[in-house]
Simulated assay, not measured.
Amino acid sequence: MTPTGTARRHSGLALALYGLLNPIPPGFFIAAWIFDIIYVYSYNSLWTLAATWLITFGLIISIIPRLINLVHVWVGANLSQTSAPRVDFWLNVLVIILSIFNAFIHSRDAYAVVPQGVIISTLVVLLLCVTNIQLALRVRQTYEG
């Protein structure tokens, strides 16, 4: 609530940018995970190089949606500490932190990426699945409630 007693409105442009850019980084991270799995079976170093670029692009593009989400969750409407947007925010922050470590692992020689790179890529994809399931349940509650 603002000092005048009216609910705070969020910027339409910010919400549009968030809706446009938020689904892109998971695509990059999932593609990097698939490329890591392909590398495990083929040992063609091209796959780890491509995975490195995908992780990097995913991290770069994830900056804007996370900043918008930060303002929306922490400055916006008064939400309880355990609300779905806050859980979504923290899960995405954890995905970004793991992806940063993953980018450093993938910057090594191709043979040094396995198994740590594959394990972290798998953890990132699992966290993305949990985040999207949580988001789907939140949308479902919005429509039912």
Rank of each mutant, 00 (worst) to 15 (best):
A51D: 06
F35I: 04
I120L: 13
L137E: 06
V75F: 11
S45I: 06
L67T: 06
L49D: 10
V113T: 14
G117F: 05
Q134E: 08
S99Q: 07
L127W: 08
R86I: 14
V93N: 15
P23N: 02
I60T: 02
V130F: 03
F28I: 01
W90G: 01
Q81G: 13
S107N: 11
V93T: 13
A103G: 02
R140A: 08
V73L: 02
F35R: 06
R86T: 09
A136L: 07
V118C: 05
A110F: 08
I68D: 04
Q116I: 12
Q141H: 07
R86H: 07
A136Q: 04
V124R: 00
V113A: 08
P26K: 06
R86Y: 12
L46Q: 14
I64P: 13
S42K: 12
L123C: 13
L91K: 01
T142A: 14
D109F: 01
T52Q: 10
L49F: 15
N102A: 09
A32E: 04
P23T: 12
V114D: 13
L20R: 06
A77Y: 07
P85I: 10
L123G: 07
V118T: 14
S42V: 04
V114A: 12
V40Y: 12
Q141S: 15
L59V: 12
N78V: 07
T122E: 08
D109C: 01
A84T: 12
G58Y: 12
T142L: 13
L98N: 07
I24E: 04
V124C: 04
I30R: 00
N92D: 13
I30A: 15
L20T: 15
V130Y: 01
A84I: 08
F29V: 08
G27Q: 05
A112G: 07
I30C: 07
V93F: 14
L20C: 10
V125E: 03
L127H: 01
T122K: 04
H106K: 09
G58D: 09
V40M: 08
S121I: 06
V73Q: 03
V124M: 03
W90M: 05
N78P: 09
V87R: 15
L128F: 02
I133F: 04
L46P: 06
A32H: 07
L70I: 01
L98H: 01
I133N: 10
C129L: 14
Q116L: 09
H72L: 15
W47S: 06
T56Y: 09
T131D: 00
L46H: 15
T48Y: 04
L21Q: 08
W47G: 10
V118R: 05
S107Y: 12
A50W: 10
Y41F: 10
S42Y: 00
N132W: 02
V75M: 13
F35D: 13
I133C: 03
R66H: 13
F28R: 00
I61C: 02
P25F: 11
S83N: 04
C129I: 15
P25R: 03
I64F: 07
L67W: 07
V93L: 13
A110I: 02
L94C: 11
G19V: 15
I133H: 00
P85H: 05
N78R: 08
I24T: 05
Q81F: 06
T48D: 14
W47K: 12
